[in-house]
Computed example of a mutant assay.
Amino acid sequence: MHTVTFLTIGQSPRPDLSVAIEAELPPTARIRHAGVLDGLGRAEVEARFGAVRGRATLLSRLTDGASVTLDADAVGAALAARVEQVEAEGADVVVLLCTGEFPGLRTRRARLVEPDALLTGYVGAALRGARIGVVVPLPEQVAEARTKWRALDPAPAFTTASPYADDDGALCAAARARLDAGAEALVLDCMGYGTRHREALRAAGITAPVLTPGAVVGAMLGPLLA
Rank of each mutant, 00 (worst) to 15 (best):
V83Q: 07
D73Y: 13
G133H: 00
G76D: 01
A78F: 08
A91E: 02
P156H: 03
A81N: 11
L127N: 00
P139H: 14
Y122F: 11
A110L: 08
L119A: 01
A72S: 11
V134W: 07
G124L: 03
A88S: 13
G100N: 11
A117W: 12
A91M: 05
L96Q: 06
A117G: 14
L118D: 00
D92K: 12
R82T: 15
R106F: 03
L118G: 02
A143I: 14
A72W: 04
V94R: 14
P137Y: 01
R82E: 14
R150Y: 10
F102Y: 15
R82F: 10
P115T: 01
D153M: 12
D116P: 12
L118K: 00
L96H: 06
V75G: 10
Q85G: 05
V93S: 09
A143Y: 11
K148H: 13
T107Y: 00
D92H: 06
T147N: 15
A110G: 04
W149I: 00
R108P: 04
L96T: 05
A81I: 11
P115C: 01
A126N: 09
R146T: 09
A74E: 10
A88Y: 06
A151Y: 09
F158K: 12
V142N: 13
P156I: 02
R109N: 06
A126L: 10
G76T: 04
P156A: 03
V113R: 03
V142M: 10
E87L: 11
V134Y: 07
E89G: 05
E114N: 08
A80Q: 13
A78P: 09
V142D: 09
L119M: 14
D153K: 14
A155M: 06
A91Q: 05
V123W: 00
C98P: 06
A91P: 02
A78C: 11
L105V: 09
G100P: 13
G90E: 05
V113S: 07
V135A: 08
T120C: 01
R146L: 07
E87C: 11
T107Q: 03
A161M: 12
R106W: 08
G90V: 02
D92V: 07
R131M: 10
K148P: 11
E101D: 15
A157D: 14
A125R: 14
T120N: 00
R82H: 14
E114C: 11
P139M: 08
G104E: 05
T99V: 03
A143N: 14
V95M: 06
P156S: 05
F102Q: 13
L118P: 03
E84Q: 12
G76H: 03
P156Y: 01
P139I: 10
C98V: 07
L79Q: 09
C98I: 05
L118T: 00
V86R: 05
A155W: 02
P103W: 03
T99I: 02
D153E: 14
A117D: 14
R131W: 06
D153W: 06
E140D: 15
A157W: 09
V93L: 10
C98A: 08
